Simulated assay, not measured.
Amino acid sequence: MTGAGAPRPVRLWWARLPGDPPRLRRLLDPVETARYEATTDPADRQRFLVGCALSRLVLGRILGLPAARVPLRRVCPRCGGPHGKPALDPAADPPGGLRFSVSHSGPTVGLAVCRGADIGLDVERADDPPDVDLVAPHILSAAELAVLRGLVPADRAGALLRYWTRKEAVLKALGIGLRLPPRRLEVSPPGEPARIERWQDRPGRVAELRLADLVVAEGHPAAVCVTGGAQPAITEEDAHALLSAVD
Results as ranks from 00 to 15, higher is better:
224 V>P: 00
211 L>E: 04
183 R>C: 00
126 A>F: 10
154 A>C: 11
100 F>N: 00
237 E>F: 10
209 L>Y: 03
46 Q>S: 10
187 V>L: 02
22 P>D: 15
190 P>E: 14
138 H>I: 01
198 R>Q: 07
52 C>M: 11
241 A>E: 15
225 C>W: 04
176 I>Y: 10
232 P>R: 10
119 I>Y: 12
80 G>H: 02
5 G>W: 12
203 P>N: 10
223 A>L: 06
102 V>W: 03
197 E>N: 01
60 G>A: 13
212 A>V: 10
213 D>Q: 06
240 H>A: 14
192 E>L: 12
213 D>I: 01
223 A>H: 03
172 K>Q: 03
10 V>G: 05
60 G>N: 09
11 R>G: 04
218 E>I: 07
150 G>Y: 13
201 D>G: 00
131 D>M: 05
23 R>H: 15
75 V>A: 01
233 A>C: 12
34 A>I: 03
67 A>F: 13
58 V>T: 10
174 L>C: 06
160 L>Y: 14
16 R>T: 15
183 R>H: 06
18 P>L: 15
58 V>A: 13
105 S>F: 07
6 A>Q: 15
146 A>N: 09
236 E>T: 13
140 L>P: 01
103 S>F: 12
28 L>Q: 08
45 R>T: 11
79 C>D: 11
86 P>V: 07
147 V>F: 15
211 L>M: 06
51 G>Q: 14
162 R>H: 09
43 A>K: 12
186 E>F: 00
39 T>P: 03
199 W>D: 14
133 D>I: 03
99 R>L: 06
56 R>C: 08
158 G>K: 13
134 L>W: 08
209 L>S: 02
165 T>E: 08
34 A>D: 08
200 Q>T: 10
17 L>W: 15
215 V>F: 02
230 A>E: 12
43 A>P: 05
149 R>C: 08
101 S>N: 15
210 R>W: 08
227 T>Q: 08
69 R>P: 02
135 V>I: 14
25 R>L: 13
96 G>I: 01
243 L>S: 13
242 L>E: 07
79 C>E: 10
239 A>R: 04
205 R>Q: 11
36 Y>H: 11
83 H>Y: 05
135 V>N: 06
49 L>A: 03
211 L>V: 00
97 G>H: 04
206 V>K: 00
123 V>R: 01
108 T>A: 06
45 R>L: 13
175 G>M: 05
166 R>Q: 05
211 L>Y: 04
51 G>E: 14
233 A>W: 09
237 E>P: 05
150 G>R: 06
58 V>W: 15
11 R>K: 09
34 A>S: 00
149 R>D: 15
98 L>F: 08
175 G>V: 04
195 R>S: 06
92 A>L: 12
169 A>P: 01
43 A>F: 12
155 D>G: 04
206 V>W: 03
216 V>T: 09
190 P>S: 05
51 G>D: 14
71 P>V: 04
96 G>H: 02
80 G>P: 00
90 P>S: 02
186 E>S: 01
41 D>G: 06
131 D>G: 02
95 P>L: 11
103 S>H: 09
230 A>F: 10
232 P>H: 13
112 A>L: 09
130 P>H: 12
119 I>P: 04
3 G>M: 09
184 R>C: 07
